[in-house]
Amino acid sequence: MSQTPQTFAPVESSDPMVVPKRVAMVRPDTRPTIRRREEKWVMTFPHLIIREVIMFMLVVIGLAVVALLFNAPLEGLANPLETPNPSKAPWYFLGLQELLHYFPPVVAGVVIPGLVVVALVVIPYARINLVAGPLWSGDRKRLTTGITAVTGVLVILFSTFQCWAIVVPSLIVAAAMFLARSEGSGGSFRRFLALVTLPEWVMTWFVLVAAILTIIGTFFRGPGWSLVWPWNMYPPA
């Protein structure tokens, strides 16, 4: 082996016979790890693991502090003969309990929650959720009539039950949708609104309604499920 080692020099060429190119065959059903542009990758240990440990510690410390400061509620021994007044479910069901005030139990207790679960499950399978662009990029005339019609039906439907907690957010969301119509003009908030897609509008409406119902049920319902201020919830007996 007396040969001198060959020196290597980088070769630049567009000929694939000289410089091999990486080719990826991507079928629609393949795994999604292939991207058009290479990204920067880092080692999971330590970069991700250390962040997970810190997050774990912060959450546990936060919970411990809250547990030290606030006591979990405990009322008197359960008495099947005496309904406390008001009688409330845990907070995440108070939106539902608030609905029960307006609608027959089969609607508020079975139909509406059932529809919500079905709607959540079908989200990734509905085409509209996969391809939707900004709301007003579609047929503007049809959208105008569509939004007006749907809002009108919702407002009339819920007004007959006097369920203003749904009517008002519906009107607000519809107004915001029309505010987004004048794209390109206005401040940064209006330009942001113009980019919102139809599924996002619907979800925002749902979250707004759920949040308002839950807040009313939690803070503004007193004895006999009557409307009260939060500081009057438990009147002196």
Partner: peptide, 15 residues
Amino acid sequence: WDQLAFWGVSVGTNM
């Protein structure tokens, strides 16, 4: 098994 628990669950299961 306090009042909160009993009536919360009564209302929920009646739903």
